[in-house]
Design a binder for these strands. Structure first.
Lengths: 353, 353
DNA sequence: GACCGGAATAAAATCGATTTCAGAAAGTTT
DNA sequence: AAACTTTCTGAAATCGATTTTATTCCGGTC
């Protein structure tokens, strides 16, 4: 009976219609649970669809509908805990709203980022969520997304010279809290390892650090602030340098756990006791942070929740659009959300217990 | 001039054709660099396309062509080093062959795996690469992939009761080598923590272990072999048990680094010196393995290369199909490849240096 | 029994690119 | 200059589902 599927010919609604002596349009409506179709017919059609092993052809449907039910997320690296957790949160909400999530990776390359965007526009995705590569300083490619009527939402690493929704952590506050914690522990000579300063999140983290330092009426030597110690190796090298300085720091606050790891290695290689002689606080709650010893104090970014809220912005707009679908130009208002993060105190910074 | 794009109307080849006084078919051919179109015309069309900010509509193209240029990979977890490296390798080759890669995550759930497969079939992807969830024991959903004329390639965690290409590591040999190494280091009472035995890779790893034990004319107590100590916590608990046994092991070979980490924690909590009193070898070269102390001896699965070769199977078939596109039923022959892995010796198992 | 309202179903247009096939233009060969 | 290629270009069909518009078929009403 299910002989229709021979030699790679796909089963279509026309096949179902023919077998059931119906019009294709009725089949389509039945399968989509639209009104004006009797329940009896719906059941009949669905049964036949299953019997013939019918598969909905999304290309055809999307072409007609003009939207795809697909949301795309572009991240620098999927194997960084922050991003994979964010993605997990996004997947959760997408699944609940019956949408698909496509994941793209840029490997911190601006070229790859542009290419991914191009592909996704061609793909007709409904929404693009992006956290920019470290190399990205221009936003023309993001502008193109908007020009193609695709909703754009930036998260974490955002650039503000484009009008779209954004969602980030409370970077300023979290950094302030982290440095406060170091001060509480009696550290006074706190160095800061930052990230590329064209990205707001790294500026904010630096500002949080500076505010805490300032409020404690401390003055730090200029070389305590290193702008671009992002990777383990660059941080290690910079820390070794700094720790051999005539007036070395007694603590480090770094904007990435990988950098913190570099500092830790530097400290250990110089025979420093951690946390007694050297306090370290990282950023991101990378999974290795509580496996190494001493376990690393770090900031948990609540990343899964951030992912959930990020796609949530899209679904809110979607619901809103449906309600007022008469408006000619859908005024989708950009929102800017902030997700709270929290300090996780571990051994690397805790010297008075 | 580029006024055609107002109010969300997409630029199509018809728009280009109209502006250039050409037929849409000529535009299509020019954009696709097909023969029978003069270079002059191609240049003209491409220039106009850029000017109008034309975007190729993949939904339309794919509907017509019947294929999508999209390859999908389904993995249990993207944040496991093995899988994210495999994906990186796949992306590399996909990009080189001008295909797109979609990533799906099952979170070790059979339900989610089935749903992902369903979605991808609807999406009309050209090829699905899959590493099964731990829960997966049936293959009906995989069968469906084949029935829809989508190429199926299983990697790493494969089930053999379905006819498709597979690619795995030399699990037997690698495990054998790992246990050999422990024997070389003088360990004699080697325990084994395995994985779900319905998956061939875990059977093979166990066989490799058993072969090495047997060849050394050793006999291990039955409780040295634990079938399902996969996670850190289950392995830790099992190891604590075993180490307090009247005749405790002096070494562990586990089929996952996470399990090895559990063993390490167990050993440390019982005050055992590693590697002097307890040797440990893990599996997968997870990134944390050389961050913890002692650094963990483990097996590197050459995962990026495995990813490259996995999609390579598809592109080989594709090239082959193009050559013989006359054959009515394309006889795509299943291939079965093996990727060599290598032992990485670190501190956790090295007691005679 | 003519008429109406509503529900259920059908017919046909549509989305945008590709592809087949036919035809026009240009160039070669005798 | 006729005949014949070889290039190039255009018209129209097509992929499969959705959607708008048009029927048909009811029971019910006066």
């Amino acid at each position: 009976m299910a002989e229709n599927r021979k030699s790679g010919k796909r089963v279509t609604i026309y096949d179902i219609a023919r077998e059931l002596n119906l019009a294709p349009s009725s089949v389509s409506k039945a399968l989509n649970d639209m009104p004006n179709i009797s329940d009896k017919l719906k059941a009949l059609v669905k049964a036949k669809a299953k019997e013939l092993n019918y598969k909905h052809n999304l290309n055809a449907a999307n072409l007609r509908r003009g939207y795809s039910g697909i949301i795309a997320v572009i991240v620098p690296k999927i194997n960084v805990a922050f991003f994979s957790d964010v993605i997990a949160g996004m997947e959760e909400v997408c699944a609940a709203n019956n949408h698909r999530l496509i994941i793209c990776q840029t490997d911190e390359s601006y070229q790859k980022e542009k290419q991914a965007v191009e592909t996704l526009i061609n793909q007709n995705v409904d929404c693009i969520l992006i956290s920019l590569s470290l190399e990205t300083k221009a936003t023309e490619h993001l502008q193109e997304i908007l020009e193609n009527n695709i909703e754009l939402i930036q998260f974490d690493r955002v650039l503000s010279d484009i009008d779209c929704s954004t969602i980030v952590n409370d970077n300023h506050e979290a950094s302030y809290t982290a440095v406060q914690h170091l001060l509480d522990q009696g550290y006074r000579k706190i160095a800061f390892f930052g990230g590329p300063s064209h990205l707001k999140i790294y500026q904010d983290r630096k500002k949080g650090y500076l505010q805490a330092i300032k409020e404690a009426s401390l003055v730090v030597p200029y070389n305590y602030i290193v702008e671009n110690a992002f990777s383990t190796e660059s941080a290690r090298a910079a820390a070794v340098d700094l720790l051999q300085f005539q007036d070395p720091p007694d603590a480090f606050f770094t904007i990435s756990d990988y950098a913190a790891l570099g500092v830790l290695k530097a400290g250990q290689s110089l025979g420093l006791e951690i946390p007694r002689q050297l306090g370290i606080v990282g950023y991101a709650n990378e999974s290795f942070t509580d496996l190494i010893s001493p376990a690393l104090t770090t900031i948990d970014q609540n990343s899964r929740e951030l992912g959930r809220q990020a796609v949530g912005i899209y679904f809110n707009h979607l619901r809103h659009k449906k309600d007022v679908q008469d408006t000619p130009e859908p005024v989708s208002v950009s929102v800017h959300e902030v997700v709270k993060s929290s300090l996780i105190v571990r051994d690397s910074s805790q010297r008075n217990k």
